[in-house]
Amino acid sequence: MIEYALNFGFVCVALALLMNLYRLTVGPTTADRVLAVDTMAINAIALLVLFGIGQATAMYFEGALLFAMFGFVSTVAYCKFVLRGDIIE
């Protein structure tokens, strides 16, 4: 039963990533693209956790934590660059 739920979850996350990719390529403003990358990081974390459940190992958890941290840092760096023209002043 968990296998069917996992397959459903994989399909949902894949569709969500495709929608984010659409917003990343089309997105009229720079801020739209930054928001799309931020949401993509969240979807990638969900994909990694689902894969970890499917394989029944806790190894992918560290990858998910790294994705969470780097997603946040990259979003803040992009926004700081747009706002101030520099990342570390």
């Binding site: 739920a5 969500a16 984010n20 949401t39 969900a46 459940i53």
Partner: peptide, 18 residues
């Protein structure tokens, strides 16, 4: 299974809103 299905649906809804 219910938690996975609900989570997947909400991820889909969040990205559809985008």
């Amino acid at each position: 299974s219910l938690l996975i299905v609900i989570g997947g649906l909400f991820l889909l809804i969040g990205s559809f809103g985008m």
